[in-house]
Design a protein around this nucleic acid. Structure first.
Lengths: 338, 338
DNA sequence: CGCTCATCCTACAACGTTGTAGACTCACGT
DNA sequence: ACGTGAGTCTACAACGTTGTAGGATGAGCG
């Protein structure tokens, strides 16, 4: 059906290796020969069989990206950035969804399907730091996210503690003193929730404000519904607060919804800040203050680092840790009360 | 590095073909032999080289999905559903982003990169009906969306006209008479905007209400920002309206934001309905009435149909058109005024 | 004039898998 | 005793590509 090197070689009157050489920009080819081969190629509509090429070369030009779910906006936007970053480097992206399930995550680390890819960008949610040894696989792997630190692979992450501290300090600077947290994970130390909570507490400490556990609402999943539920719990508990730090934008938006339903004015009664800088927060009512964790930088760095490991040039380097720069984005939800 | 059939064959004391047969569940193998091979496989940690397999078999087990952008929530949720549907059928998904750009879309239809996949699910945005002939490619292709009808390939689409009519009729049933539209495409007949506008007009006709062009705000892109801008234009134009039909949820949410900013109460002053049933609309303030276009059914059908074409069993069938069932979801934004 | 060396090209093998054809064994019916 | 056929296994070729080794040609140089 499709034309092969052989067909082109026949049409151009050269050997198949010469055609291959033309395609791969081998330098010692007569201009006239090259011309002839090029014509045959376009005439036959030839394009290389990538399975054969990858069998021979051991490279597929495809990287895997494993994320919990694309319907979580953060991961959708991350995937977007990663596909673009990969595209700039000539790579395609195959996406796996783990659902944030530990077993599924472990399975992906040992799945034969991954042979179709040169390496994997892996953003676990169900695995914890004790699972770090499972990352010691025999293919190039770059870890994303905050579930595991000090693992055996390169790791790209955001400045969770510092940015959460900045977010909290921002609320404090607006005169808020009772800052509720939505989306904590019970007992977590490492992980987005644990780290961001640590930043929150640091900011409180610096301001000399005692930490009140009653202000922390827990939510295992970070969907909109959980933000709404957590806020209902907070309101129901009767605890007083004048600000909310959402562990991510989605939670913050769900919480805002419930706050407004309950008649609390944002930001006058309650200031709100989120985390992730989703597009959505730019058009909510009110617009949502947030932390931009440097998503594009995360994507660029991750793809670059993975490509380095794939190329093998950096094979001897020990695992590296990259932390991106964050940015506080001030919008309406955290303005000074009128 | 990695073990091959040869290594396993050596370890098990059989020919490589026998190992291959075991892997492919060939039936006539002695239980004892099978056992021995299986042990060798797990001992060596063998897993098949998929490049070689796909070179030999002509199948990769990967399908491509080309969408405008994952940061558009609709496509993120669609991609989510498609990855899940593909997973159920043992397929992996490689995602391309076109940015909704016609040139990029045409390029993807002829890209050699696609050889790494068995077929393509293609959701164009920049191409128009006149480009239909570009879909006549020599690989399995299933068209998604509303840009092109009557093309040379199978096509899975939603019931745009009927569901838009139902959405409009729903607003009419709540006593609304001046229904603004956000997100029209100037002069478009085919395409989500054109079809949904047709449904809108049909509902007006049935209710005996004349169509007022001044009520239609145009927006080429369907991002949140465009919904906001369109609504600002409508408000600025001074045209009166008591309801808004957003061509999609994202537009509707952007428009709601501006409406509320301008002091219009939803649904008391203005009722709003969107289209797509994004998770977001379930937690907005107010919650957003919408059309569920049957995303999961779209994903399932598309993957099934593509797989049929890939398998070649249905190769002789003429292009088929599939239209999914929609569902009107009534939430707060379109309730009767107090 | 003959040697060296760069240039341009080719033949062949190999990547790891599966399809094809066929060899061998053994039970069965004639 | 002998063909038949089902069951079990193997050798070999092929998928389309690229790496290796080397052949042919001609320019440059002593």
């Amino acid at each position: 059906m499709a034309a092969t090197l052989k067909d082109v070689a026949l049409a151009a009157g050269v050997s198949i290796k010469t055609v291959s050489n033309v395609i791969n920009d081998y330098e010692h080819i007569r201009a006239e020969t090259k011309q002839r081969v090029m014509e045959a190629i376009s005439e036959l509509g030839y394009s290389p069989n990538l399975s054969a090429r990858s069998l021979r070369s051991g490279r597929t030009g495809v990287i895997g990206l494993a994320v919990p779910e694309l319907s979580l906006s953060y991961f959708a936007e991350l995937a977007d950035s990663i596909i673009k970053a990969a595209g700039r480097r000539g790579l395609k992206v195959l996406i796996e969804q783990t659902g944030g399930d530990r077993d599924r995550e472990l399975e992906i680390l040992s799945s034969p399907r991954l042979q179709m890819t040169d390496g994997l960008l892996f953003s676990p949610l169900g695995m914890s730091n004790e699972d770090a040894h499972h990352l010691d696989v025999n293919f190039p792997l770059v870890l994303l996210g905050e579930r595991i630190f000090g693992g055996p692979t390169d790791h790209v992450t955001m400045s969770n503690v510092e940015s959460a501290r900045a977010a909290t300090a921002h609320l404090l600077s607006k005169g808020r003193r009772r800052i509720a947290v939505v989306g904590g994970h019970q007992g977590e130390v490492i992980g987005s929730a644990g780290l961001r909570l640590r930043g929150y507490r640091q900011a409180l400490d610096e301001a000399g404000i005692p930490f009140d556990p009653a202000l922390v609402a827990y939510a295992t999943l970070w969907h909109r519904a959980n933000g709404a539920t957590s806020m209902r719990e907070l309101l129901g508990s009767g605890v007083e607060f004048d600000a909310v730090f959402g562990m991510n934008d989605t939670l913050a938006l769900g919480a805002m919804r419930v706050l407004q339903e309950a008649g609390r004015k944002i930001p006058d009664d309650v200031a709100v800040i989120g985390f992730d800088d989703l597009d959505e927060g730019r058009y909510s009512l009110p617009t949502l203050s947030t932390i931009d964790p440097g998503r594009i930088e995360i994507a660029d760095t991750a793809v670059l680092v993975l490509q380095e490991r794939i190329s093998g040039r950096e094979a001897d380097l020990p695992p590296r840790e990259f932390e991106t720069r964050f940015r506080l984005i001030e919008r309406e939800s955290s303005a000074l009360p009128a």
